[in-house]
Nucleic acid binder design. Structure first.
Lengths: 331, 331
DNA sequence: GTGAAAGCGCTAACAA
DNA sequence: TTGTTAGCGCTTTCAC
């Protein structure tokens, strides 16, 4: 639990051991200022030998940059947040910046608590993340005095946000189905009050033309199932392809189709949305679906907050990052 | 992006505005030392008015406690980590402690990088988290000089670890099936090289008696499916209940049983393990399963690291936290 | 009860 | 090129 040398080495120890002054040691270690190459090497070697690690607290106190950023999320389940957080972290760690994770659990009190803590810690910036792109951030976030980036969440007008390109994602799904020669494509999706659902539906309608039909419902497997029941209990022509608003819906659709003896993808091709592998790899046949590239979203958000924290200017607005199609067996 | 008063208030500002010295202000705000009640109130009021927030960097530098702890995880997907992290964070935030999230992505280089960063930041402790209880932590973690807690991961002999009580989880699953009057219970589970799988299987065997049969395989839906195919292609008596090592396996099992016209739970009762709702709520019928109470695991890990960071002593060893049974329709 | 002063570990003028 | 000095914002003796 405790190492042999319980007290940590300071730059003072390094300076003394190397026979130089503290400031020379500092200059040498940071490679700035005018330092003799020999001295620099020596200081670095000594620091290494001593296992010296600079105290980030002291450095931050002085430079007014903590080299830490906070990530505020309302997601406790992790489906969206952790891939993004991993992406953010991947970028940051290479720049010596660490990430505070704050799960607000959708509780404004917790959000405030976390926000205050982040401010106390002098974070260089904050990334706000949500489980839907039209979720508004806590109002305190707006007048903070430090940079904020919105990822998979709705930022105010003059802010920088990163979203998956839902419209493009919907388009490549429909185009893929067109390529397969399908023309009677149905769109079964989630709740209409989700902006993402509306964006995807609009993009779908543009490509599917007047025959395009959208069924809004819930983000659940069950809805996919019952939507198929509805469709097949009606008379009239049946679709030859179904574009679903989520993998879970798609799974319900696939199960319901199989129950009816409809062959996938021969009779009906199915495309999902999310590439949530626990679902999309397990349907029968495995699901062709749209991946939102959440890790890449995290990368971009990380890069952006890094830039802002260095006082670089960023064009405000929503950056929409392309989705990709993952072809499996269902379409 | 930047507030009207761009510069942050310091304790100096508070002291000046309250007409007291810096040290009195400090004493008053922290409620320590001998301070006149009136003075204290006044200082606090002024601090509030000014929107004063103490600089955690400065405080940490002086007190040698950063009030931050690090969480190291090899999980990028989030299924296990984020519920635990949320639990940890919930505890910490109420104690004014923040959480650094470090996703190592199973890459030793990244792990080292993150570990160094955490040390530089003077974290008061580290929680190591993994996706399986027999995953060994990076060796650097062992000789660190700061407290470490292992959650859902394998700690060294003299450390404190928190695991789900896999044996107890398996027992309540089997007992539940016994209560339902089932006696020919089969256990279909994941890879035998997972410690958790072996622990659960052992506990199952103890209760199921000599007729107990364990089928090890993979942690996949597909394996559940093919296991059922195997069982039903053999002659001999069929099980009246199946205890599955994961919800995904259970889903495969349920689907395969339904394909064969076996009624659930009438002919065969099915119990899963994980309570991963995207799976367990969506099977038909919904899955009765074992919940590992990951958030509670996070709570306990958080409490433990808090204690250790205050130099409290903790009994070394593995603390196994009880699982709970979530009854749905399948058993 | 309150304030002056020292200093945590480090960086950044400036002087030497 | 190197060393001296002055802090960053806070806590904490120790006089008063």
């Amino acid at each position: 639990m405790s190492s042999p040398d319980d007290k940590r080495r300071t730059i003072r120890d390094v300076a003394k051991a190397a026979g130089v002054s503290i400031s020379t040691a500092s200059n040498a270690l940071n490679g700035i200022g005018r330092t003799n190459a020999e001295t620099r090497e020596k200081v670095k070697r000594v620091a290494d030998e001593l296992g010296f690690r600079p105290n980030a607290l002291a450095r931050g106190l002085l430079t007014k940059r903590s080299h830490a950023i906070g990530m505020l999320t309302n997601d406790t389940y992790g489906r969206l947040t952790l891939p993004m957080a991993a992406g953010v972290s991947e970028i940051l760690v290479d720049h010596g910046v660490s990430l505070f994770l704050c799960a607000t659990n959708n509780d404004p009190r917790l959000a405030k608590l976390h926000l205050d803590a982040l401010l106390d810690r002098q974070v260089d910036g904050i990334i706000f993340t949500a489980t839907r792109i039209d979720l508004e951030p806590p109002p305190e976030l707006l007048k903070l005095g430090i940079p904020v980036i919105y990822a998979f969440a709705q930022g105010p007008a003059d802010s920088v946000s990163f979203h998956p390109d839902d419209a493009q994602g919907a388009r490549i799904a429909v185009q893929h189905l067109h390529t397969l020669g399908r023309s009677r494509i149905l769109h079964i999706t989630g709740e209409q009050n989700y902006l993402a659902a509306r964006i995807r539906a609009d993009a779908y309608r543009e490509l599917a033309g007047p025959s395009g039909q959208v069924m809004f419902g819930e983000w659940s497997e069950e809805w996919g199932h019952s939507a198929i029941d509805t469709v097949y209990s009606q008379s009239g022509p049946k679709p030859d392809a179904i574009f679903c608003g989520s993998d879970e819906i798609a799974r319900g659709v696939i199960d319901a189709l199989r129950d009816r003896g409809v062959s996938i993808p021969d009779d009906v091709a199915v495309v999902g949305f999310d590439n949530w592998e626990v679902v999309s790899k397990q349907t029968r046949p495995p699901l062709t679906t749209i991946d939102m590239e959440l890790k890449e979203l995290g990368h971009r958000a990380g890069l952006a907050i890094l830039g802002l924290s260095r006082r670089e200017k960023l064009e405000p607005g929503i950056v929409r990052l392309p989705c990709s199609l993952v072809a499996r067996g269902s379409a």
